[in-house]
Design a protein around this nucleic acid. Structure first.
Lengths: 159, 159
DNA sequence: GCAAATCATTACTTTTTGGTCAAGATTAAG
DNA sequence: CTTAATCTTGACCAAAAAGTAATGATTTGC
C-alpha cells in the first residue's frame, strides 16, 4: 500500500499553486522547476488536475495555472481520488487472478479489511485541506497530528 | 494509495493456510486453485513468504506449505511489509523526479502527511492477526470495526 | 535405486504505469 | 497582423510490476 508517483507529484504541484497570492499563476516550466520534474510531466499532471476541476489555466504570454477554488476548500481525499483513479470501487474486479471473476464471490474475508483500510485512509485525508500543507514541515506535522486527533480504541461510554 | 497485486494475493494465500487444521498442508496447485491464480504465480508468492519466515514447506510427495507460526501470532502489518517491500523508509529517495535528490530537502510540507498516513495504516494493520481473517465476511467485518475501535478526534481530557 | 510428486530459483515475457515528444491551438504584446 | 509564449492533446517510448516458464533439487513410496 503506497502512494503512486502520480499522487505524489500531482499533490506537490497543487501545493505550489496553493502558495501563490491572489492573481498570481505559475507556468509549466516554473512548476516543473520548483518540483524537480520535467516540464512535459508537469504538463500531463496539470492537464489531469485541470480536467478534474482543481486548477484553471490561461494560455498565451503571461498565462499559467492557478487554483480553481480556495486552497482551504480543497480536501486531500478529493485530490487523491482523481490522481489514483478511485480504485476502491473496482477492487474486486481488479484482483481476479486468471479467472474472469474473483473466486471469493458472495462471502469474502479479505474484503472488509481492504474496504476498512481504504475508509481509514479516506477519513484521514478528508480532514486535511490543501491550505494546511502550506508551511514548514514542523507546522504541517503539528497540523496533521492535531487534525487526526488521538486515535485509540475506546468503547463508547454510556451508549 | 492502493493495495498491490502482490499484497492482495499473498495475503489471500496465507489465509488459505490459516484455514488448515494442525498437521495439514496445501500444495501449490491447491493454493492456486483456491485463489484463482496460476500455479506459477502461487509458487512465486509462497517463495517470498517462505523467505520471510511466514510459511514452511516440505518437498516431495505429500509435501506442501503450512504456516510457520500460529495464525494468531501473525499480524497483518508484518505481512504487508514483506509483500510491499517496506516502501516508507525509502519514500524520499523514490520520488526525486528528474533530480538526483528530492528538491524538498530539509523542510518538506508533504512528508508529514505521507509519513502520517503510513503510520495510520500500519497502526490499523498491527491490530489484526491472520487468524481473525478466517471466517465469514460479516464476522471479519465485525472484528475489523471492533478492533479499530471508535476513531474520533478528541482532545486529551485532563492531560 | 528409481520414479513421481513436490518445492526452489532464475530467466524471460507481458502488462501497467510513468514519462517524453511533437504538432496544434490560444492569447498577449508590439 | 505577426510573433513569442503559453497551454492542449494524442501518440509514443521507457521503466517497473506482474506474471510465466523452464530447469534444478528434494522427498516419499515402491
Amino acid at each position: 500500500m503506497k502512494i503512486s508517483a502520480q499522487e505524489e507529484y500531482g499533490l506537490r504541484c497543487l501545493v505550489q499553486l496553493a502558495n501563490l497570492n491572489a492573481g498570481e499563476s505559475l507556468t509549466l516550466p516554473q512548476i516543473a522547476e520548483r518540483e524537480g520534474i520535467s516540464t512535459a510531466n508537469a504538463g500531463k499532471l496539470m492537464w489531469l488536475l485541470n480536467k478534474a476541476g482543481f486548477v484553471n489555466s490561461t494560455r498565451g504570454t503571461k498565462g499559467g495555472y492557478f487554483l480553481a477554488r480556495p486552497a482551504g476548500d480543497i480536501y486531500l481525499n478529493e485530490i487523491i481520488k482523481v490522481l489514483d483513479e478511485d480504485v476502491l470501487s473496482s477492487h474486486c474486479d481488479s484482483y481476479t487472478g486468471v479467472m474472469d471473476k474473483c473466486v471469493h464471490t458472495g462471502d469474502c474475508g479479505i474484503r472488509p479489511v481492504i474496504v476498512g483500510l481504504h475508509e481509514i485512509v479516506e477519513n484521514a485525508l478528508s480532514r486535511i485541506t490543501l491550505a494546511s500543507l502550506v508551511g514548514s514541515e514542523s507546522s504541517v506535522d503539528a497540523m496533521f497530528h492535531k487534525i487526526q486527533g488521538i486515535h485509540r480504541t475506546i468503547e463508547p461510554q454510556g451508549i
